[in-house]
Simulated assay, not measured.
Amino acid sequence: MQTPLHLACANGLADVVTYLIENKCELNLVDNGNRWPLMKAVQCQQEKCVAILLEHGADPDLADADGNSAVHLPVISPNTSAAGLLLEHNTGIDAQNKEGCAPLILAVSEHQGEIVGFLLNKGADVHLNLIKVLLHYGADVSHKDTNGWTAEDYAVVHGYSR
């Protein structure tokens, strides 16, 4: 079952989303896929709807059946705009799903270099164990991202030595 708000979010109907919210619709109801309207808007890359929902108090930290919160979804898409909106509203950048994966780990496993850099710049926690695993499997620490930064550059900026 999808609510009118779910459908409006999925289809980017920002005016309808605003109308429904102004008429006191429930912001955090789940659909039959266990997704909230905010998650649906993020999943469908409807940033304007994401912004409207967040401005009106939608909870960005609710998790689906797999433990994914809204901030996990733009990592796979990838969508730095949606991720940025969520982080502006104090979403847990290091929230872990049921598999123990934070958005940063998902971004690395999905080879989403731009999102990895984005999350690191926004303060995602870099666990040294993750780095050790990546190095063990042959991660190229000299590879540069779209900003021209290497893994070592990010490590130094975040207070880690070589």
Rank of each mutant, 00 (worst) to 15 (best):
Q2I: 06
L7D: 13
C9H: 06
A14C: 04
D15P: 03
V17N: 05
V17W: 07
T18N: 13
L20C: 08
E22K: 14
N23W: 07
N23K: 12
K24H: 14
D31L: 12
K40P: 00
E47V: 15
E47Y: 02
V50G: 02
L53Q: 00
E55K: 15
H56S: 05
A58G: 06
D61E: 03
A65H: 14
D66R: 11
G67K: 04
P74H: 00
I76K: 12
I76L: 13
P78H: 11
N79G: 08
A83D: 02
G84A: 06
E88D: 10
E88F: 00
N97K: 10
K98G: 01
A102H: 02
L106I: 03
V108I: 09
S109A: 14
S109V: 10
H111W: 08
G113W: 04
G113C: 07
G113S: 13
E114Q: 07
V116G: 05
F118Y: 10
F118M: 02
H127W: 10
I131G: 05
H136S: 08
V141R: 13
S142G: 08
K144V: 02
T146C: 07
G148Q: 09
T150A: 00
E152M: 12
D153E: 06
D153I: 04
Y154K: 04
V156Q: 05
V156F: 14
G159D: 05
S161Y: 07
